[in-house]
Design a protein around this nucleic acid. Structure first.
Lengths: 219, 219
DNA sequence: TCTTTTTTGTACCATTTCGCATTAAATCCC
DNA sequence: GGGATTTAATGCGAAATGGTACAAAAAAGA
């Protein structure tokens, strides 16, 4: 039971942006928390291997509540995917804001990625890769999300390399598109190897090697 | 019905290495063919989303026959994985034997990979990546196969770069391990994007870009 | 022809899965 | 307090799933 404040000083403190004093029986769960738990299971087992009972168990919600709150399994997966993306854009934005050179920026980028991929007791990898590798990729809406994910990552790296060129860290003739896709490739490779159980030190070595190749001066 | 020769000139021509005139009712299927069909379904839908009924349907074998021939679903998956690896080592070996420079060798490597990843009416991607991204990766034996797959690919690229150094195409100081892992990363990236529906021309551009980065002379 | 051997094909079982219908509970508004 | 409203909880039902038992079929060998 989570009850937050009981109608004492309600007026002065809005807390959450909108809490319009709902009418009926109060929810026994926090939608955000539940979705986070759902995401964790999807990340562990993938789309097909996850049953609604699994999600019911992990959230403590029974199936009808789950259904009422989020919709069917497909809707739950899509919401989980969006949640995943939201969760991990914040730490990435920090890296963009930092006044650092391209090597350090890439290093931090891969470091955060490894945090994500290795989270949990068992390494989870990347939700996007898991989605692509599942039968869920046959779904047009999900495929569109994945494509957006690709583009966002490519663009993020593109910004990094473009900024590096502006700062004079890389030559003007740098092929930004190619480097970005190579950096993205490194990311997917880390995701795959991480989920397969490759230890973090080894993954860091791969990331470091990638940085040195991607940032070395051309002849 | 496939019957090959009936006891006419059996002695002179062994055809298949061992066909010891089996005793009971003849099989109504060709194990190799069936396993190929099983592989195709696993590649399309992944481990969890594939049911024994699906496999029964595609092979034309009923479930008990399937079970008797290959074992349970897990055994079927492992055998499919091994079959996948076997199927695609031959074309790779050809690339090793060819007397070509590193750029051409990598180009062909990625070309064959794209043939694999884009095979079928719907792009299938890489079995290894699909396995990693599924819940099957929790299985130690399957995980061992995946790790072997990683190592084999890294080693194959390693041989390519080592040979290139020997041939004077790359400087002696080349970090072969790093380049190999980058090439592997490119491969996984192609696999992921291919399965997500990225068109071949775009994938080829990525591959070409990777080749130019991996083979450019250092400063 | 009759037995033995191997596979096929049908049927079955226990469990899981998804989805929904219905009832019980908890809160707000009057 | 009484109705309205929203959610929780139980449970049903139809279909799918993995796996197996058992009898029929098709071949070889005696």
């Amino acid at each position: 039971m989570v009850q937050k404040r009981k109608g004492t000083v309600a007026k002065a403190k809005p807390e959450v942006p909108a809490e319009p004093k709902r009418r009926g029986r109060p929810r026994a769960y926090e939608p955000d928390v539940a979705l986070g738990q759902v995401l964790a299971v999807f990340r562990r087992d993938g789309y097909a291997a996850t049953s609604l009972d699994d999600l019911s168990a992990v959230t403590g919600m029974n199936r009808p509540s789950l259904y009422g709150a989020f919709g069917d399994k497909r809707a739950l997966y899509i919401k989980s995917y969006q949640r995943y993306r939201e969760d991990y854009t914040a730490p990435m934005v920090d890296i963009f804001k930092a006044d650092i050179d391209i090597r350090e920026r890439l290093r931090r980028f891969f470091e955060v990625a490894l945090d994500i991929y290795l989270s949990g007791e068992q390494p989870r990898g990347c939700f996007t890769v898991m989605t692509v590798a599942s039968d869920a990729i046959a779904d047009p809406e999900i495929r569109a999300l994945v494509h957006q994910g690709f583009a966002d990552v490519d663009d993020a790296f593109g910004w990094c390399f473009r900024t590096a060129v502006k700062r004079g860290e890389l030559p003007a003739a740098t092929d930004i598109a190619v480097l970005s896709q190579m950096a993205s490739a490194t990311l997917y490779s880390l995701a795959v190897r991480a989920r397969a159980g490759v230890p973090r030190t080894e993954l860091q070595a791969i990331a470091n090697g990638a940085v040195s190749i991607l940032c070395r001066a051309v002849a």
